[in-house]
Design a binder for these strands. Structure first.
Length: 879
DNA sequence: CGATCCCGCCACATT
DNA sequence: AATGTGGCGGGATCG
């Protein structure tokens, strides 16, 4: 190598201008020659070598393999030249190339030539998109690297992404197996499902896909493994499986990121994902501290991934022009529907046929998972609970169960909303100044909460109580609740949680509450855009009396452990990136309307829709009564979702009025608690509605049978993107205790109840603002009008119930978090998913957490305690 | 000047 | 220890 380098180095400069480029460029026209020659001329060195050539030589000398490569190279060369023209379709790159051509004269090697995207195209050109199933093509990294004239490192970048999509799998050291796109649709489908689900267990599915491969290889190591311990990364499971051994270790964040990134597209209605949003979503750990650098790094990685995906023709670069600015974004141009998006699960895999085994395989994974869970969970009731299994089965048997679908939709909606909101918000908020001020309050909460202890104790109890499935979170929470306990729970039952909701709660370090309405104008000020409507509403809300109750409750809640840090840091952090976020969150106050208004743009519209959807979703959960019946939930939820779906699409801007009305009503101002995922947890955020009505009970009955959850969990990513979350919470309708509503909701351990109800504050990850009071959302009752929106009714109810209040309780929020975690753990099977989700999103690298997560899975029961711990840890650690 | 993202150091894993 | 992998981010280039 050294030698090689030398030769290369010296001449290098000149060399750079490789002719190669030229040829490519011409993509359009073959004339490459003209161009090429020119370059050559430029460069001092005699032609003979291009860097590549040197490499070849070296390679050949080095090993026999290399020789082979050389051969290939030869092949390759031609390919390059001709190929480029061939592959023009590939993308913009071609275009670029053309332009380059001119430039290249200069001789610039130009970066473009070396771009990862181009390199990837070359790489892909070497292999058939749809290789015969029978033949396997092995890829030697060295070979490819030499052929393409790049360092191996670059090949890893490509291969890692391809591997995430299962286009290749790692066979052995330096050896990858080319699979082509046969399974691509399936993989995408899987990713979509996973994404929709929130990235839960679904991952497993993937595994089976690759099973074939594995078998081939004979590696099934993973299978054995794994329980949580073996592999730290859950996420990976799928990919890993395929390749097998490899992943064991740590990272592979690139692969995970790639999958997540793809998932974002798949769950996005618009199919457009902006880089910054993606980065935020993918940043698990913490946005906080490091943020900026981290964000930057993430973006860099995303570019790497995007280049590969672009080369694959799955996405293309676009710019999202929002009112103010235009952001770089990528649009999914690959297949969208696979089999199952929303429809049916099974139909899928158009292309995938090839793998007979897949289906079966799929099943298998599930089973496996189940088992694993059981273990972890063990005794515990929840997890193991039948419901879960049932679900799973469904899944296994049918990839997309209706249930899932709903969830998916929900998720996607959320995501979309988040994205949209975020964008909007950002724009709006752009004014940083504004944002910060917003409502974020720091939550002192930490201090307060007592949760910790409770939860643990509680847990056990809970289990017994409810095995309910519906929401793990909720469930767990209830269980957890020590204090609240019975009363609240009972009413609804833990079930309060939304069955539908796909989301899980995670503990994150920081919590923030959002207040739908700030008492004061803060909101207004802060949010200009939304402002108008928002303000009014806000005011109205504000007017609403916040319940004093909350306060007290909140106090109760004070977060125990973790909590503390979050706040401050958060605030600080906020300044940076997050500031946006918070704002966004805030915005939501008036969610719909504002959104709509904003939405004027296309995006805006969508957002509005999303929002609605959102509401709906939320609403669904609401039904408290229903909650009792766990079983019922699913159905209900489904229905609800459907509704929501229906709606969503429709509402374009025109609908505004309705919407607005609804919104107004619904808008509840929702106060949500947002829990930020702390480090590592990136996965979900929770939102709790601050206000719940105690009285809420009534609602539920109607359509929303199911849940009355006070909390909504949003995928962290979503949150990130969104600013708002609205949850209508609900409370337990019956709950004996008004305040309790929250508690009910809260099934979480926390004492949330208090908080929830009252606090208007929004907790944002970053900064905390002071709490404002929230207003009463209750404003109107228009909502009812729209049935479609589930929420509205709910809201209304809730409102009634709601009380509000007070100021903030920071601590509370914290508490919640903890609860959540625990809950999650203990939870039902669903919980499991969540866990995975988390893992999924998280990057491996970021933390040690993974382990913890694993644990969660494993020990659901205990989790409570463990969870809490984790939470605490996380919270603390973040800093 | 911000958006892209190449390059390769370096740490960790595996052999 | 050597080699394989791949995170990561400086800083160059592009637009």
């Amino acid at each position: 190598e050294n030698i090689f380098d030398r030769s290369r180095m010296a001449p290098k400069t000149p060399i750079k201008n490789e002719p190669v480029d030229l040829s490519k460029q011409k993509g359009c026209t073959p004339e490459r020659n003209p161009i090429t020659p020119v370059k050559l001329i430029d460069r001092p060195q005699p032609d003979p070598w291009t860097p590549t050539a040197n490499l070849k030589m070296l390679v050949s000398a080095a090993s026999p393999d290399m020789r082979d490569r050389e051969k290939k190279k030869e092949l390759f060369r031609p390919i390059e030249n001709s190929e480029q023209s061939d592959t023009p379709d590939s993308l913009q790159y071609d275009m670029v190339d053309d332009s380059t051509v001119d430039e290249f004269e200069k001789q610039r090697p130009s970066r473009k030539q070396k771009s990862l995207g181009l390199l990837c195209q070359k790489f892909l050109a070497r292999y058939p998109s749809y290789p015969l199933s029978t033949e396997k093509t092995t890829i030697s990294l060295d070979e490819v690297a030499s052929i393409l004239g790049v360092e191996r490192r670059r090949i890893y970048d490509i291969v890692n992404v391809l591997e995430s999509l299962h286009l290749v799998s790692r066979v052995a050291k330096n050896q990858y197996c080319w699979h082509g796109r046969h399974n691509l649709s399936q993989t995408l489908k899987t990713l979509q499902e996973a994404g929709e689900l929130q990235y839960g267990e679904l991952m497993t599915f993937f595994q089976h896909k690759e099973q074939d491969l594995e078998h081939k290889f004979g590696e099934r190591k993973k299978e054995t493994i794994p329980d949580s311990q073996d592999r730290p990364l859950l996420d990976f499971s799928e990919p890993d499986c395929t390749s097998a051994s490899a992943n064991s270790r740590k990272d592979k964040s690139l692969r995970i990121m790639s999958q997540k990134f793809v998932m974002l597209f798949l769950v996005s209605k618009t199919k457009i994902v902006t880089l910054d949003i993606a980065a935020k979503i993918l940043i698990e750990e913490t946005q906080d501290t490091v943020d900026h650098s981290k964000f930057k790094t993430k973006v860099r990685r995303l570019y790497d991934i995007a280049n590969v995906l672009t080369s694959l023709g799955l996405i293309k670069k676009v710019h999202v022009t929002e009112e103010r600015g235009r952001k770089p974004a990528f649009k999914w141009i690959g297949p969208v529907e696979f089999p199952g998006k929303t429809d049916e699960p099974r139909g899928h895999s158009p292309t995938s046929d090839p793998l007979p085994g897949t289906q079966s395989g799929a099943c298998a994974p599930y089973q496996i998972c189940a088992t694993g869970k059981q273990r972890f969970t063990r005794h515990t009731s929840f997890n193991g609970t039948q419901p879960c299994e049932g679900t799973r089965r469904k899944v296994s048997s049918e990839p997309n169960s209706p249930h899932q679908e709903r969830q998916d939709e929900y998720c996607s909606k959320m995501i979309n909303l988040a994205a949209v909101c975020r964008q909007k918000i950002e724009e709006d908020t752009r004014n940083p100044s504004i944002t910060s001020p917003l409502s974020l309050l720091p939550v002192p909460g930490d201090s307060d909460f007592c949760v910790n202890p409770l939860p643990q104790a509680v847990f056990p109890v809970v289990q017994t109580d409810v095995p309910s499935l519906s929401l793990p979170n909720g469930i767990s929470g209830q269980a957890l609740h020590p204090s609240i306990p019975a009363a609240s729970k009972t009413e609804n039952g833990k079930p309060a949680l939304l069955p539908n909701q796909p989301f899980l709660c995670f503990p994150s370090s920081s919590l923030f509450m959002l207040c739908g309405g700030l008492q004061e104008n803060n909101l207004r000020e802060t949010l200009p855009t939304t402002g108008d409507v928002g303000n009014r509403r806000a005011e109205a809300q504000a007017t609403v009396p916040p319940a004093a109750c909350q306060k007290r409750s909140s106090h109760k809640c004070a977060s125990p452990s973790a909590p503390v840090d979050d706040e401050e840091p958060a605030a600080k952090k906020q300044t940076m990136e997050q500031s946006d976020v918070p704002l966004s969150l805030v915005v939501p106050k008036k969610p719909f309307e504002s959104l709509k208004a904003e939405s004027t743009a296309g995006s805006g519209c969508t957002s509005a829709e999303h929002l609605e959807a959102f509401h709906l979703d939320l609403a669904s959960p609401a039904a408290p009564e229903a909650a009792d019946k766990e079983s019922t939930k699913p159905l209900e939820s489904q229905e609800q979702e459907k509704w929501s779906q229906n709606k969503d699409p429709d509402e374009p801007s025109p609908g505004k009025e309705h919407i607005s009305k609804e919104n107004a009503n619904q808008p509840f101002l929702p106060q949500y608690l947002y829990v930020q995922p702390t480090a590592g947890l990136s996965s979900f955020n929770f939102l709790f509605s601050a206000n719940q009505a105690p009285g809420a009970i009534s609602l539920a009955a109607s359509q929303l049978p199911s849940l009355s959850l006070p909390c909504v969990v949003v995928p962290s990513a979503a949150l990130a993107s969104f600013p708002l979350v609205c949850s209508p919470t609900i409370t337990s309708p019956l709950s004996p205790v008004p305040d309790g509503s929250f508690s009910a909701a809260a099934s979480m351990n926390f004492s949330m109840s208090g908080l929830a109800s009252t606090t208007p504050v929004f907790i944002g990850t970053t900064a905390v603002v002071t709490p404002k009071v929230s207003p009463a959302p209750s404003v109107d009752p228009q909502q009812p009008a729209h049935p479609p929106l589930h929420l509205s009714p709910v809201l209304a109810r809730s409102r009634g119930a709601v009380k509000r209040d007070s100021p903030v309780c920071m601590g509370h929020s914290v508490t919640l978090l903890k609860l959540q975690q625990p809950s999650s753990t203990p939870l039902t099977p669903k919980s499991i998913r969540p866990a995975r989700h988390e893992a999924f999103f998280k990057t491996p690298g970021s933390l040690g957490d993974p382990v913890a997560w694993k644990k969660n899975e494993g020990n659901q029961n205990r989790n409570a305690s463990s969870v809490q711990r984790r939470l605490e840890i996380s919270s603390t650690s973040p800093d």
